[in-house]
Design a protein around this nucleic acid. Sequence first.
DNA 1: GTGAAAGCGCTAACAT
DNA 2: ATGTTAGCGCTTTCAC
Lengths: 324, 324
Amino acid sequence: MSSIREVAMEAGVGVGTVSRALSGNGYVAEDTKKRILEIAKRLDYTPNEMAKNLSTKRTGIIGIVVPDIENPFWGRFLKHVEIGLYNYGFKSLICNTIGVSNREQDFIEFLKRKAIDGIIVGAHSLKDEAYLGLKHPVISFERDMGPMIPQVCSNHAQGGRFAAEALLKAGCKRVIQLGGTYNGHTPADERHIEFKSVMEAAGANVTTIEMSWDMVGYDHYRTIMENYMELFSEVDGIFTADIGAYFCLAFAKKKGIKVPEELKIIGFDGLEITRMSDPQITTIAQDIPALSRSCVGCMIDLLGGKKVESKYMVDVSMQEGGTV
Amino acid sequence: MSSIREVAMEAGVGVGTVSRALSGNGYVAEDTKKRILEIAKRLDYTPNEMAKNLSTKRTGIIGIVVPDIENPFWGRFLKHVEIGLYNYGFKSLICNTIGVSNREQDFIEFLKRKAIDGIIVGAHSLKDEAYLGLKHPVISFERDMGPMIPQVCSNHAQGGRFAAEALLKAGCKRVIQLGGTYNGHTPADERHIEFKSVMEAAGANVTTIEMSWDMVGYDHYRTIMENYMELFSEVDGIFTADIGAYFCLAFAKKKGIKVPEELKIIGFDGLEITRMSDPQITTIAQDIPALSRSCVGCMIDLLGGKKVESKYMVDVSMQEGGTV
DNA sequence: GTGAAAGCGCTAACAT
DNA sequence: ATGTTAGCGCTTTCAC
């Protein structure tokens, strides 16, 4: 492991010159530069990132906090964020909170210790206060932490409206919607508020069932759906996240309930699984690539000291299927 | 951002004492230690990780290279590895190769620059040579890079045998298996070799279709399955990864082929989706938590300078369903 | 254009 | 038990 010092000695120059030649910052004569580069290669010189970090006060690593990587929505989000950050030269450090607040806290600590340059938070295991005092770059995804923390989210109100309009058009009178808890005020709340509002304005009856935001496993959904399916005799429409919609459809089939004739199902998210069922699930698709781009772009601006908006909202879209 | 120096001054002691008091390494009187801790808290002292790293030559970060986080198998693997590493105090840096070898190479560079302490590789976008020269901790998952790099994998031969026995018992005579390419010699090859061998020993006919290891998206599988479905008129059994099995089942249903009466389908992996279909897919389940534990344990031993085995093999298990 | 030297903030060896 | 000091390897003024 040769250091910059050895390269400097071999080339008969100072370490400063080598540093400049390698980083491209500052003046250095063309021929000395070429010589240094050759020697560096010959000595198989590899810069030490830790030393560089200590000097520049940057690590080139961004932390991404999500509730559960295994969940297809978060997996997809993570993938696109990672790709976006990579294109700007940043690496992605993951934190699965799996509902454990210590893990999220631990990541904040990591940020304060300057082991990472910033954090993108998509989990909710910790109170907003944990982030509000930080002087470090933080972006919240699908979470409102007030005007001090830039926020990226889907246009949930639009999604709620799309769903309501679709169900109304299909003639639904008595529907159920399942969603994350209202506590903590997530942008997703807007979806349920708008959905309920539009449905009721048209004279339909809406029952809202809340479930924890951070409990997003398949089994949890399956259990929830099967438990509430008992209520469905009176119900003609359901609005829920895609995974819930999937199990709902499966359960309806098993019970002999005809979809969409007797029961309309409309999902939210736009995950792959909506296209794996028969019929395919009609759903409101979130634009995960665009959401990810917003998160990344905002983080890059923040790191660059640029001014950023306090809220970035991304449109959703209707994805046709056969369940409405 | 107070430094260790300020804490030392405030406490009227040397920086060394503060360092010892905070890290717990070395002697320091109980009362001075208490005093230092109080002052540190009062000053809101946060250790600087970069400086620590430069001193200790460790970052506490492990890189995990996978083909695609969005794929449910890799998402699950990643999740369990992250949890395992976290329990040992390590953080997880992800690299999605998405088939792009530069990205994998970039990560190796990161390791050489000492930005991370080690790498767990589950992708195959780069040749073994890229890793063989490294003097850094590397563990390969489901990939054989020779005796120098410790390897963790499922007992694929066992899996191939289980699948073959199940299909034979069900009376299959003419089957197809789909799998990753034989080039590069992955442990998964054993599965196909053993499957073929057991089937043929019993007089059955086996056709093996190869597909790229790193192309693991849903769409790719769907396309492949639908293309090959044309061959199925003569075929009475299929052995493929779970995603392929899922699409195969869906396609069979659509074509009116009765499963399992006319066509038996057996998957491999044990993903959630095998339990989302009706009938549920019979599959050979990999023990992802155990595989992850092996990867993590091996990495920890490697970092601790302990001797490690060159190969860790984890048993698979039969997961009953209704497709065989 | 280039060299020397002062950090970056911490750890660890050594002396006391 | 504790203070002092020499690194860790790089970046970045600041003279020359």
